[in-house]
Amino acid sequence: MKGKVLLAALLAASFSISAAEQHAHWSYEGQEDPAHWGKLSPDFSLCETGKNQSPVNIQGALKTHHGKLELAFQPGKQQIVNNGHTIQINVSEGNTLRLDNDTFTLQQFHFHAPSENEIDGKQFPLEGHFVYKNKAGALAVLALMFQEGKANPQLAQAWQQMPTAVDQPAVLNKPVDLKALLPKTFKFYRFSGSLTTPPCSEGVSWLVLEQPVSASAEQISQFRGVIHHANNRPVQPLNGRVIVD
């Protein structure tokens, strides 16, 4: 009898979770596209009302002497997944970013094609977002632009196992070497922004690397072929925010 009660409770819980997920479904196309996100769920209201939203067009950056970017890399297991919105690679602990005397740990990185952020009105064919979190739960996103050119050997490793099916994660046979993927110099733009997907939470520290790296037309096309559509949110108003360089 206890087993039946437990089963009923689990079924009820899974139904309620499914209902919540269904209610909060969002997309990059049609009636659930970025222009409608703020109305899809009360949880997504910031997508419409927020004043510090991302992505942005980076222009007129204020020259400052902000601290250098301190990144530490730790090889470890990586898991690749197609979550229906992007290709995401989840990482094991040990990859860190030092910002404002605080340590942020890399959680995952994922991709958008075309780029979400723009630099002086220029949109890149692909952008990577490295999502870091500190112990208090605050987020910092390091953005990397890809320009069309030579094939990227690090992307090639991940793309070999790029899942076409949604929500079927796979462990990468050969993890992406993050240090080799990023450019050698870490000059960056910085601004305060938000998540670029619902619920569009604000208070995210954005660091956009100035120097792009290359990816081949075939690699970019392969990503877009798996996602089936552009997966970029349009640029958002700055609303008086200052971008520093």
Rank of each mutant, 00 (worst) to 15 (best):
L6D: 05
A19C: 07
Q108F: 01
V141L: 07
I58S: 01
T105R: 03
G121C: 04
Q219N: 11
V131T: 12
S45C: 03
E21S: 11
K150W: 02
R224N: 12
T185C: 07
L11K: 11
V91F: 01
L97D: 11
E116F: 06
A24W: 13
Q236R: 03
K4G: 02
S14H: 08
R233Q: 10
V213C: 10
E210M: 12
Q211H: 11
W159S: 10
Q53L: 14
Q236T: 02
H66C: 03
L62K: 15
L46E: 12
D120R: 09
K63G: 03
S41A: 10
G203E: 05
T164C: 11
A158M: 15
D100Q: 15
S14Q: 09
P175Q: 08
G94M: 13
A217R: 13
P237R: 13
C200L: 09
T185N: 14
F109N: 00
F186R: 10
L11R: 06
G203C: 11
F111G: 05
K2D: 13
Q147T: 15
K174R: 13
Q22S: 11
T197C: 00
S27F: 01
P199A: 11
D120Y: 09
L238E: 07
E148M: 14
A72I: 04
R224V: 09
E70H: 07
A12Q: 15
E70K: 12
N152S: 08
G240E: 13
F188M: 09
L144H: 00
Q74I: 07
S194E: 04
K184Y: 06
T96V: 11
I58K: 02
F104R: 00
